[in-house]
Write a protein that binds this DNA or RNA. Sequence first.
DNA 1: TTTCTTTGCGCAAACGTTTGCATAAACATC
DNA 2: GATGTTTATGCAAACGTTTGCGCAAAGAAA
Lengths: 352, 352
Amino acid sequence: MTNRTKPATIKEIAQLLNISVSTVSRGLHDHPSIGLTTRQKIKKLAKELNYEPNQTAIFLQKGSTQTIGVILPELSEAFFSTAISAIEDTAYKRNYTVLLAQSHDDEQLEKQLVEKMKNHRVDGLLVSVGKSTSSYQHFERLKQYDIPIVFFDRIPAMPNIHYVACNMETGTVEAVSYLLKKGHRNIGMINGPSTIFASSERKGGYIKALAKNRLKFDPSLIVSCDLTEAGTRDAMDNLLSKKRKPTAIVTFNDYVALFAIKYAAELKLSIGKDLEFVSYANLPMINFMEKVPTASVEQFPYMQGQKAADILLDLLNNKQRGMPEQTAYYKIIIESQLVESRKPITHKTPKK
Amino acid sequence: MTNRTKPATIKEIAQLLNISVSTVSRGLHDHPSIGLTTRQKIKKLAKELNYEPNQTAIFLQKGSTQTIGVILPELSEAFFSTAISAIEDTAYKRNYTVLLAQSHDDEQLEKQLVEKMKNHRVDGLLVSVGKSTSSYQHFERLKQYDIPIVFFDRIPAMPNIHYVACNMETGTVEAVSYLLKKGHRNIGMINGPSTIFASSERKGGYIKALAKNRLKFDPSLIVSCDLTEAGTRDAMDNLLSKKRKPTAIVTFNDYVALFAIKYAAELKLSIGKDLEFVSYANLPMINFMEKVPTASVEQFPYMQGQKAADILLDLLNNKQRGMPEQTAYYKIIIESQLVESRKPITHKTPKK
DNA sequence: TTTCTTTGCGCAAACGTTTGCATAAACATC
DNA sequence: GATGTTTATGCAAACGTTTGCGCAAAGAAA
């Protein structure tokens, strides 16, 4: 009986029991109009045959796949991999499955993936847009098909979208205030390219923190950087060549911080004494290192992924229940938060 | 024309053109029996209507979903996230999509996921089994349904399976030989729990390297460890309390190495001088750190993922082309390889 | 003109479900 | 015994494709 190569179908059960397929279907779903005895017979045989409903058939019939698509720039990056982990967890809890794809920050590829997701009839989409993506029609098109999208972390400049993102300003205010409280009065900042939104948020936070403490703002203390190791060194040279050298530096992310720290060590500067660092991301690796930024602004990748998935699934739920056209858009801002090093929050300890 | 909420179907095209659905279907597939003019008309209208085939219907019809399932213990771990990145890349290239799930090393969950994947009618499965998984019927069952599985990295103790894994012995031999060549004669090893296969492979490599150099083997230099930070410290205490202290240590993985290095630093031992470390994994974080193992045994997660996916897709290809029942099983062993630090191989530089 | 081949297209079944509607039997009501 | 109600089941359409087979029209060969 278990030696069959093809999965059992409702039809077979019906034939074997000499009843109709509709009865079997209803029986399996505990439809009240099916008699107790038949229902039991059906379930018994279904179990014996190891019957499992063919989802693809159900998908077609219901027009819904119980599947959400996820498009991310790069799966192997720590931020995204913990986000996807969160997404998968919450999707699983709510009985959805995750279709995964990575865009490698390539706009063309991203477009293709969106199409592919649409053809696979995902019920909804979660996306963090590629760095270089500049046009957003491929997302617009999905709206016409009534496939909701929730963006997270990297948000496109589009009106009327759902998203969850992290407010970098709060964290930056905290970071700078933290350094001010420690007595630093010359605080440098190695910022990202001015083209990206996150950079201006950080700059805003920096200025706000100074204003809050009634200190004057020296624009030359903020330098841009392309986030490479070489760029970081240039930025450091730039900052360290000032008459009044900074005694602390806020860096755009942990990688930049580590590049900078490495360079500072080469210059025989004592990390934490001559020069103190505060950064963003709170990468798990920080826990294993000796010379690290004394604090880092946590962006809560797990929470971002979780929230985004929850929102998407709520949207799908409402749609399916025939709720009124939602006219409101979810715009969730997670406040970033300064975390002193060696106190990880969201990252789990590696088990491998 | 573009203001429709439901995707266009073949049926609509047929109606609008006053021809039959079969003609439309064939026309879109360039079937030779369809006239040139009709074919053009069909394609033109299809384009105008933004027609895209409904994959769920095709799935049902063809009995194949062009989808592979991937079950991993933990998506957020570096090894797995780069493996999944590789899998996604190669699946994409061969026009497959990836359905993702994580087992969190939970046997029950893993079983459920396998069922779910089956119901979603994935064409094949890629899995790295959970640490605690001890029974394998859930995998056996899939065979009955003719859904091929390729295991990778963590291989279950089952006969007749396809897998790709990394041979840790070679790398270990290299690692120990490397240290011997550097003049070390007292080499310690912090190994993993003796229950797991990878531990015995490492031990075997250690012994082999000594034998090769005609040196005698002191079993007390190999200590087990539960891979936690505390366990690592115990192991270190154990090793350092010997009369003839080791001057170099091979650790089970990079995490253990870093715990050990941290501890050694606390003990005022100079890393690389008093005590040299060699490890496994070659985590990307190594590139950012100052005190690191001088070398690490690379396990090529990207390549493992890629190979595993390639094998699975080959299997699917052959099946679909009606090749004879394959009686042979792929057993791919990737040789691990010692890599001196600061020379990453497979890991891409983070872009975020 | 008749017969044969080619070319171009439609019919209908199939994939495995779900579900609105109809129907038959059994029972209760007066 | 006629009517109404409940209970249990079946019929058939629908979801959007693909594909084997049949059939008509057009051309070629006789």
